[in-house]
């Protein structure tokens, strides 16, 4: 299958290894990956921060970029849910744009969702001999309703010792600009998340979204906690 990667601005700029790992896994499964350099940002920050008109410019850009893409894979749960839940609202009143979104949105899939629900694959041939815990991230859990999909992918990784994270439904406190505007509340939430991560004794905490992971890892690293964060694609890319 020909798969178009929407890497997201965040991964492109800060976490290129997540994009590389996504390419590795998809190519290993025999798919042809295409990257369109016109892509930039989904508009999540603008939309969630009170700038819907600015976000709409980025909705249009996304549509321009992916209009003819047969399948679009996104290694980010929050960007996927922005596209799915917010694009139609941002485009309200523009019937031509809405009609295009109607045809594009069903072709947009979050990475683990694409593997488990479109390709129906759980074992991607990965080997990762470490103790790992998984943070669900609110968008995976509630907006995308990924359920056990990421867990099933991790379960098939050879050599891995998986430990469940307590209170998995609890937000890590990132919330985009919330982490800065309400930095202290955000930190209080992060502290409880780090406590849960540390209680697992895991060496690695993983998730389907690098924004949660950047937050959790930023706190763990400040405390010299000795736990690192890795996007789930990076674990699945290891052999």
């Amino acid at each position: 299958m020909r798969v178009s990667l929407f890497i997201t601005c965040f991964n492109d700029t800060l976490f290129p290894q997540t994009g590389q790992a996504t390419v590795t896994v998809l190519e290993r499964l025999g798919h042809e990956v295409d990257f369109r350099p016109e892509q930039t940002c989904c508009g999540q920050m603008h939309s969630n921060s009170g700038y819907p008109r600015e976000a709409l410019t980025l909705v249009r850009r996304f549509v321009e970029t992916y209009r003819d893409a047969p399948m679009i894979v996104v290694p980010s749960t929050s960007c996927t849910s922005t596209i799915r839940a917010q694009y139609p609202r941002l485009a309200a009143g523009d019937s031509a744009l809405l009609a295009e979104l109607d045809t594009i949105i069903p072709r947009v899939h979050e990475f683990t969702e694409f593997l488990t629900r479109v390709l129906e694959v759980e074992d991607v041939g990965a080997y990762y001999p470490h103790r790992v815990t998984y943070h669900a991230s609110c968008n995976a859990l509630r907006a995308l309703k990924l359920g056990g999909a990421p867990r099933a992918l991790l379960g098939a990784v050879r050599g891995m010792e998986f430990v469940d994270l307590a209170d998995i439904e609890q937000c890590c406190g990132f919330g985009g600009t919330f982490a800065v505007k309400n930095a202290e509340v955000s930190t209080a939430m992060l502290t409880d998340k780090m406590r849960a991560v540390l209680a697992t004794g895991a060496e690695v905490v993983t998730a389907g979204d690098n924004s949660c992971l950047m937050h959790i890892a930023g706190g763990l690293s400040r405390l010299q906690a000795g736990v690192r964060a890795m996007h789930i694609a990076e674990i699945l890319a290891c052999v």
Partner: peptide, 16 residues
């Protein structure tokens, strides 16, 4: 309260 990751040596688009 948190570290922020530095920009990596190469962006994904440059790598691609």
């Amino acid at each position: 309260t948190r570290d922020f990751p530095a920009l990596p040596a190469q962006s994904f688009r440059a790598w691609w």
